[in-house]
């Protein structure tokens, strides 16, 4: 049973709020008035410079968070606010309650998805103290909305980080990839931990891994997404893990178009065996492009090929092969 903090909302006077804003942001940032909110049901009315009181703490709301999705870049997420915890000045992400159900499309496959505050709250509890997951807690506002207060993970996505590593792919692969690969394995172990507890991440994609600036540690973020699974509960998570591995190995997606535009001789040799089962323009048989990639690693990538006959059904299976590939990477 999930325990939710239902501490009584503590009232704050305007002077108290002003004093805290002055301490956290500086006296010149103090406003004459503050809209103090305890009920966040209408999240569109929670705006910049409002103060939301949750439990015993006031949070100064800053901007809405943004996220690129389904080819649409930087959509505002009005229910996700960046905020300052006025008790200590720390930056938080406050996720307000937003239920949605919709059909997502991956390639030509349509499936039912939904967003759930309960799921995210449950995973925050489950992963408390785990270094590979974002940290935070949940509590209810004055109208019983389940709010998640999350420590802001400052850093770039792991995907952005790898794009800037190495002079070229070969340099990247031999001098940087082995440590990235080990980090990836730990991220897969973290997802195994979730799966063992009967939870999906639900939205595994490369911009949901942030490499924390302060520690260099990569963490999974955003757990409020879910999908109605069919036979294999974790298949979509595994597909996401595969896509990330292909991306990290290739130092970015290697597409058929890129090879064509670059006049690569590989372009004329490509077959359906070489491309992603869902995203047919992405090359997964990266050894064809970068011959120094060890077979043991390429073998894993080929599980995500259009011609694959064997699919990973669990993180255990994937990790088994990753461990084998790691041995080969050590000997490069």
């Amino acid at each position: 049973m999930q325990e939710i903090d239902q501490a009584e909302t503590k009232p704050f006077s305007l002077d108290e709020i002003k004093e805290r804003v002055a301490t956290c942001l500086g006296p010149d940032r103090v406003q004459k008035r503050y809209n103090i909110i305890t009920d966040t049901t209408d999240f569109f009315r929670v705006e910049y410079d409002d103060v939301v009181i949750l439990g015993s703490k006031p949070y100064l709301i800053r901007n809405n968070e943004r996220e690129g999705r389904f080819g649409i870049d930087e959509q505002q997420k009005f229910w996700v606010k960046r905020a300052r915890d006025l008790s200590d000045g720390s930056v938080k992400i406050i996720k307000l309650v937003f239920h949605e159900r919709f059909q997502a499309k991956v390639g030509d496959i349509v499936f039912d998805c939904f967003r759930s505050p309960k799921k995210e709250a449950r995973i925050l509890d489950l992963t408390k103290g785990h270094s590979r997951f974002m940290q935070g807690f949940s509590l209810t506002d004055s109208s019983n909305n389940l709010i998640r207060v999350i420590d802001f993970v400052k850093g770039k996505t792991l995907a952005d980080v790898v794009m800037n590593l190495g002079r070229d792919h070969e340099d990247y692969f031999f001098n940087h990839f082995p440590s990235i690969f080990e980090e990836y394995m730990e991220l897969v172990e973290a997802i195994r931990f979730l799966h063992q507890k009967g939870e999906k991440h639900g939205d595994i994609r490369r911009d949901h891994i942030i490499k924390e600036e302060a520690t260099g540690n990569s963490r999974w973020i955003d757990f409020d997404f879910n999908y109605l699974h069919r036979e294999n509960m974790f298949g979509y998570d595994l597909f996401g893990l595969g896509n990330i591995l292909v991306y990290l190995t290739g130092r970015g997606d290697v597409t058929v178009q890129q090879l064509r535009d670059a006049g690569s001789p590989v372009f004329d040799q490509l077959t359906s065996y070489d491309t992603n089962i869902i995203f047919n323009n992405r090359v997964v048989n990266l050894k064809k492009v970068y011959p120094y990639i060890p077979d043991a690693l390429n073998f894993i990538l080929l599980h995500f090929s259009s011609e694959a006959n064997v699919f990973y059904e669990s993180t255990d299976q994937l990790l088994h092969d990753l461990h084998a590939a790691k041995e080969h990477l050590k000997n490069m």
Partner: peptide
């Protein structure tokens, strides 16, 4: 389809 089986699995196969 093979793609669907890849992502969601197949009950009859299992």
């Amino acid at each position: 389809s093979k793609k669907e089986e890849f992502i969601f699995g197949s009950t009859s196969s299992k």
